[in-house]
Design a protein around this nucleic acid. Structure first.
Length: 657
DNA sequence: AAAAAAT
């Protein structure tokens, strides 16, 4: 879930003079022995310290290992290099820090008078989640170097004027125009200010009054439009107002009883939501805790024992902890499912059903339930309504991060030619400087194995890439994401684990090396770029086997006023009749109108890039016309890569595929 | 058919 206006670690980099933020230099400098392209666990110098059980070598172990490597010695958690710029922009590190008992105090010291001066219960040891922002607020020159609020927040508020909003349900509370219109309370107002956020986004304008009014909600809004705040702010406010906050520290009891639960489908997304929620809850009595798999349970349990009001979690670890009696859902008053359609999809639905129906959670009506996603297929909506009571449906058009700001391009590329074509694209980007040093390229592939293979191949051919997928240990996943975010490895190869919710502000180009089978996955994937009001580019490699998605893809692109290549129209027609008719997943689109609450069709016309109508065969790259990226990017010339001498041989030699 | 999510 993106919070582009937030002064989150990464987005704040855009506010800095370039001379200040040089992640490449810093990270290379401070980690000389650390090959940036490698993500094998064997490169952890101290991995042996944490036992042979990989599952036990989680966050805290990783931190120690990293710290030791960075400074060339081990286990000095309290020591931090004040000049280590790369760390300041490390989004995940903030979360790690605040979850690690010892590191947090060191971090808190950087803001004298704020943390220490606060005597409120439960706030004494609080890490300042606004760490980076507060540090640089002192540098007046930075603020002066940007014009207007839009530049600071990264949100194009003008784009909000025409946003279509659709609501249905009984007694819908009216939207508000400012945060002042809803009294969220002094503490929250202060935190909203700290977030540099002055004006609510449309989803917030509509959703916050609904949640404040105590109503259940099913909300569709593009990621990047502020959904996290839309559910966090009213929940925090509600807990504070109704004195639902823990009346006593839970001495004696080892069972944590959160009043709010936020579930998300991936660990990294839970971490991100946790980091955002911490900002909104800063210096209030509200305690936020995150728990997810792949990391040692002990630290998470310790955090729970210190008290929890809002729990952010992935389903598996949550169920585990409930069954161990460490968490009780009896006190839940607020339940939020982020990426709700995914959470209720085949793979997750049994777990969610178990959590909601069989683990002591109050029933609909006795709790407040909020479902959020950018996509909400009709079938899933039907299923989702079982979890809701007298709910309001809310759909807000796409803003900032949506398809009207993302130039979508589809190339026909045979599977065998994909690597060569990808290399051409990357070489062209590099040659033309189209993607500045902060610009990142996110490459989606179909399988975990394919992700490893492509990462390996790119690295061998001189492109700094890491990969993230579910077969990597959690430490590697978070490291890959961190290296990507900081620009240490500006290419990330990913499976769908990274498709949803992750807010990585500088992604300039999303490449669907393999197209997903589900058009909704495509929507979420390309939504990783074009965020925060910036334009983005999404390139898809379409091959024979993508026939089943052709029709939905054409429809989506047309709704977004994208130019559709003629050959793709042909594929779409072919896929629309015949017995295969779109494959089994497409049942939910059949009979149409799962987009009855349609926000795609409101995209504004876009502009100035030329579409390809000639399928790329890999035989002769000169048949490819050069393509021109949209306004914010310089031109790429694909054919410019034709002379680049890369390692074709490894394609056959290694048998990667 | 793949991916994700507990150990």
């Amino acid at each position: 879930m993106a919070m582009p206006w937030l002064n989150s670690d990464s987005s704040s980099t855009s506010r800095l003079p370039r001379s200040v933020y040089v992640p490449h230099l810093r990270s290379n400098e401070v980690r000389p022995s650390d090959p940036p392209y490698s993500s094998t666990i064997n490169n952890e110098p101290f991995s042996g310290l944490y036992g042979s059980d990989r599952g036990q070598r989680g966050r805290s172990g990783f931190r120690r290992g990293r710290g030791g490597r960075r400074r060339g010695r081990q286990r000095h958690e309290n020591e931090r290099d004040p000049f280590d710029v790369s760390e300041k922009f490390d989004d995940l590190r903030v979360g790690e820090e605040s979850r690690g008992g010892r590191g947090r105090r060191g971090s808190g010291r950087r803001i004298p008078g704020r943390v220490q001066g606060d005597k409120k219960r439960g706030v004494e040891n609080e890490t300042n989640p606004f760490d980076v922002g507060d540090r640089f607020d002192d540098l007046e020159v930075i603020d002066e170097s940007f014009e207007g609020n839009a530049a600071n927040t990264g949100i194009n508020f003008d784009a909000y004027e025409d946003i279509p909003v659709e609501t249905s349900g009984q007694d819908i509370p009216p939207a508000v125009n400012t945060f002042a219109d809803i009294d969220l309370g002094e503490g929250l107002n202060e935190n909203i200010k700290r977030c540099k956020y002055v004006k609510p986004t449309p989803i917030q304008r509509h959703a916050i009054p609904i949640v404040v009014a105590g109503r259940d909600l099913m909300a569709c809004a593009q990621t990047g439009s502020g959904k996290t705040a839309a559910f966090c702010l009213p929940v925090i406010s509600g807990i504070l107002n109704s004195r639902l906050a823990r009346p006593m520290p839970q001495h004696g009891s080892r069972t944590a009883c959160p009043v709010a639960l936020i579930l998300s489908p991936t660990r990294e997304l839970s971490i991100q939501i946790y980091d955002e929620a911490k900002k909104f809850a800063y210096q209030t009595v509200i305690k936020v805790v995150v728990s997810y798999g792949g990391a040692p349970m002990c630290q998470q349990l310790r955090n729970l024992e210190r008290g929890v009001d809002i729990l952010v979690a992935t389903p598996g670890r949550l169920i585990d902890m409930i069954e161990r009696g460490r968490i009780s859902l009896n006190m839940i008053k607020y339940l939020t499912l982020d990426e709700a359609d995914r959470m209720l999809d085949m793979g997750f639905e049994p777990q969610i059903r178990k959590i909601v129906d069989q683990m002591g959670m109050p029933p609909p009506g006795a709790r407040q339930t909020m479902l959020f996603s950018a996509t909400f297929p009709c079938e899933i909506q039907k299923l989702a309504s079982e979890f809701l009571s007298n709910y309001i449906f809310l759909s807000v058009g796409r803003v900032g991060s949506s398809s009207d700001l993302i130039a979508q391009r589809v190339e026909f590329v045979h599977d065998i030619d994909k690597r060569k074509y990808l290399m051409d694209v990357l070489v062209s980007q590099r040659a033309s400087g189209a993607h500045g040093k902060h610009a990142l390229t996110l490459v989606f592939v179909e399988t975990k194995r394919g992700a490893d293979a492509l990462e390996n191949w790119l690295s061998r051919n001189g492109f700094p890439a890491t990969a993230i997928h579910g077969d990597k240990v959690q430490m590697e996943r978070e490291r890959a994401l961190r290296y990507f975010k900081t620009g240490a490895t500006p290419i990330l190869v990913a499976t769908d684990v990274a498709a949803r919710g992750l807010d990585i502000p500088s992604v300039a180009h999303v490449i669907n090396f393999d197209l997903p089978r589900d058009i909704d996955d495509y929507v979420h994937r390309i939504g990783r770029t074009g965020r925060a009001g910036k334009s983005g580019l999404a390139t898809a490699f379409f091959s024979d086997k993508n026939l089943p998605i052709a029709k939905a893809l054409v429809e989506l692109m047309e709704e977004a006023n994208q130019d559709v290549p003629l050959w793709l129209h042909d594929y779409a027609e072919r896929s629309s009749f015949g017995s295969s008719g779109g494959g089994r997943r497409n049942h939910k689109y059949r009979g149409g109108n799962f987009r009855s609450h349609d926000f795609h069709s409101y995209a504004k016309p876009t502009d100035d890039y030329r579409q390809h109508s000639i399928p790329y065969t890999g035989e002769d790259s000169s048949v490819q016309p050069p393509f021109v990226a949209d306004n914010n990017s310089a031109a790429f010339d694909v054919s410019a890569g034709a002379n680049f001498n890369y390692d074709y041989g490894s394609i056959e030699a290694t048998g990667w595929d």
